[in-house]
């Protein structure tokens, strides 16, 4: 099996780690596992998540 790709935080130059983080949008909160910098807390939102689930949630909550 291929070794999993790693992401590095561009600020802290450390490996990002998979963490469960809390998202808030329009008074609703959700959790999701995304790569997160253990030092500065910056997270990476994968394209698929942004255009997929997050987009769906946004549409549902905004009646789009």
């Amino acid at each position: 099996m291929e070794e999993k790709s790693k992401l590095i935080c561009d600020r802290c130059k450390v490996d990002m780690t998979e963490s469960e983080v809390e998202f808030s949008y329009l008074n609703r909160s959700f959790r999701h596992k995304v790569p997160r910098c253990p030092q500065c807390g910056q997270v990476y939102i994968p394209e698929k998540l942004a255009s997929g689930r997050m987009n769906e949630v946004e549409k549902m909550l905004e009646e789009k």
């Binding site: 992401l7 935080c9 561009d10 990002m16 963490s19 469960e20 983080v21 809390e22 998202f23 808030s24 949008y25 959790r31 995304v34 790569p35 997160r36 807390g41 910056q42 997270v43 990476y44 939102i45 994968p46 394209e47 942004a50």
Partner: peptide
């Protein structure tokens, strides 16, 4: 990272 979110994403 090509996309990032600096707020609203606290570890939970």
């Amino acid at each position: 990272p090509s996309k990032s979110a600096e707020s609203g994403c606290c570890e939970t």
